[in-house]
């Protein structure tokens, strides 16, 4: 009996409140609409989404009484699904998605430049060790090294601050570095990240 009823009658019944009519309409046209969408998007999940959105639109339009194409139900639904397919491609063009199924992996060119937790700990450790080694230097060498490396002063500024010549400051810096290397080598201290 249901199969005999025309789409237009079912639509009209549905608008009047017969919820079963919608079930019949969906059952009758689901394959054509679903296949049509799939032929465009070639993805089952996206097809499912667009199929659902198509009928949500159909339901809302019918319930609001905005449907005025009696007798042309299927072409109307097909047009809605076609428009939604176009929307889908437009949206994807605006926001292209990268999947990692192909040869190109986006993560091979994007990387997280931040240190990870382990590397951060190691870096802090190394910096602490260096500070402790610097503390062991003779005070004149230590003073020049701190000003140069930590305060970023030029040797001219260091010479002015400490009241020694630039050459002396340079010499103290050189000895500071030699002494640090000696201690590091002697105790096999590893200062790498």
């Amino acid at each position: 009996m249901e199969q005999i009823l025309q789409d237009s009658v079912l639509v009209s019944n549905y608008i009047k409140g017969d919820e079963c009519a919608l079930g019949v309409l969906i059952e009758r046209h689901k394959q054509r609409i679903y296949s049509f969408i799939y032929s465009k998007v070639l993805n089952r999940d996206i097809t499912e989404d667009i199929f659902q959105d198509t009928f949500i639109k159909v339901i809302r339009t019918l319930k609001k009484g905005n449907y005025n194409e009696e007798g042309k139900f299927l072409p109307w639904v097909m047009r809605i699904s076609h428009n939604l397919v176009i929307d889908h491609f437009r949206k994807n063009n605006r926001m292209p998605k990268y999947d990692n199924n192909g040869d190109f992996n986006i993560f091979s060119v994007l990387s997280d430049t931040d240190l990870n937790a382990e590397k951060k700990i190691i870096k802090n450790q190394v910096e602490r060790d260096v500070r402790r080694l610097v503390d062991e230097l003779p005070s004149d060498q230590k003073e020049v090294l701190l000003m140069r490396m930590y305060q970023d002063l030029s040797f001219k500024e260091i010479s002015e601050k400490t009241g020694v010549s630039i050459n002396t400051a340079l010499g103290r810096m050189r000895y500071a570095l030699i002494n640090l290397r000696k201690v590091i080598d002697k105790h096999n201290i590893v200062l790498t990240n």
Binding site: E19, L22, G23, I26, E27, K30, Q31, Y34, S35, Y38, T47, E48, F51, Q52, F55, I56, I59, R60, K63, K64, G65
Partner: peptide, 21 residues
């Protein structure tokens, strides 16, 4: 197999029942 899932159709029918204008 070109058919929507039963869940999708069931959702649509329920949506229709729940929606009132």
């Amino acid at each position: 197999k070109m058919l929507p899932k039963k869940e999708t159709i069931s959702f649509l029918l329920n949506y229709s029942k729940a929606l009132s204008v």
